[in-house]
């Protein structure tokens, strides 16, 4: 069964499995290799799926720590917001 895992970057399950077999086993490595989780939703949809793929291919338990931890900013934001540190508090 092959299907899309990362909807944003159009990454297939087979792409991720291949990356793991090629030795890219951590979330970070898979993300950089396949771009899974690097799209506009920032991994919000596929993060849980990547956990399961890694656990399954490496035959270990589903990791009990958060895999790709949500990075700040947790939403796509305009560069202007970052530049001004989100604006001054009133």
């Amino acid at each position: 069964m092959d299907c899309v895992i990362c909807r944003c970057e159009e990454v297939l399950l087979s792409d991720i499995v291949r990356a793991i077999e090629d030795g890219y086993t951590s979330h970070r490595e898979i993300k950089l290799k396949t771009r899974a989780g690097m799209g506009i939703c920032q991994g919000r949809t596929c993060r849980l799926l990547l956990d399961q793929v890694i656990a399954s291919v490496s035959q270990g338990p589903v990791p009990k720590t958060i895999g790709i931890a949500p990075n700040v900013p947790i939403r796509p934001i305009m560069l202007g917001d970052l530049a001004k540190g989100g604006g001054k508090a009133k």
């Binding site: 944003c8 799209g39 506009i40 939703c41 949809t45």
Partner: peptide
């Protein structure tokens, strides 16, 4: 979609997946 030209529509309904952008 940009790479494979696949059709997309609303999926999650809560603003998370951005498929409906």
């Amino acid at each position: 979609t940009a790479q494979k030209n696949e059709p997309r529509g609303i999926y999650c309904g809560i603003g998370h997946c951005y498929e409906c952008r």
